[in-house]
Amino acid sequence: MISIKTSNLTRTFGSNTAVDKLTIEIGEGEIFGLVGPDGAGKTTTMRLLTGILDPSGGEAWVHGKHVVKDSESLKDDIGYMSQRFGLYEDLTVIENINFYADIYGVPRGERKGRIDKLLGFSGLAPFAKRYAGKLSGGMKQKLGLACALIHTPKVLFLDEPTNGVDPVSRRDFWGILYEMLKEKVTILISTSYLDEAERCRRVGLIDKGRLLRCDTPAAIKAEQGAKTLEEAFIRIITQQGQITNPLSQIPT
């Protein structure tokens, strides 16, 4: 079953096209990686698909709901973690989680079980009473994930969730994502770490709003005869002749 489907999805800001005729299909329970240099249009794509930004052209459906026409009922089915930390730094970990549980209308009966589970596998339990602003970078991101998962969404949008997070915390973070995949959650994740992209079932490489490649990591590497995804992406982007110094654009 298709979980995310876009057709010529486009968004312009003045003369700048942030997302350019994007057409993709992502299946249910799939983890799809969105990679590309700074300003490629990753965040804009996420915002279009979560219904918090209207497209200038084209269409998109998430979990069968149109992102413009059904943008409200869509919100019940999705979880979103914005690129910038979006939780309340002056509330504690547990206050943030409870707040989102109320906002999503998580039934009282199920709440305690879910919160305990999320606190447990995110390792946040000992910090429940700490202010979110006082958490380390990795802990903040796990809290963001816990809040996005509190209502067990069908589709999860994660915008560079592991940016600036240490390797151990990143591994924990991916551990949680694999748990979600077992429950058939569809995950769209943008990342600038190509070892993370390698863990996705498929990746989409975008640059200047355009989708340059969309395939499994293995297929992309084979196509370019490259050993790593990083090498493959650099070749693809250089072939486009659009970026003069690719190394400065794609962090490793």
Partner: peptide, 14 residues
């Protein structure tokens, strides 16, 4: 300004 609204508008809040 703090970025908390982007998170909040992605929820079913009316």
């Amino acid at each position: 300004e703090r970025g908390t609204m982007e998170q909040l508008v992605a929820t079913p809040v009316r």
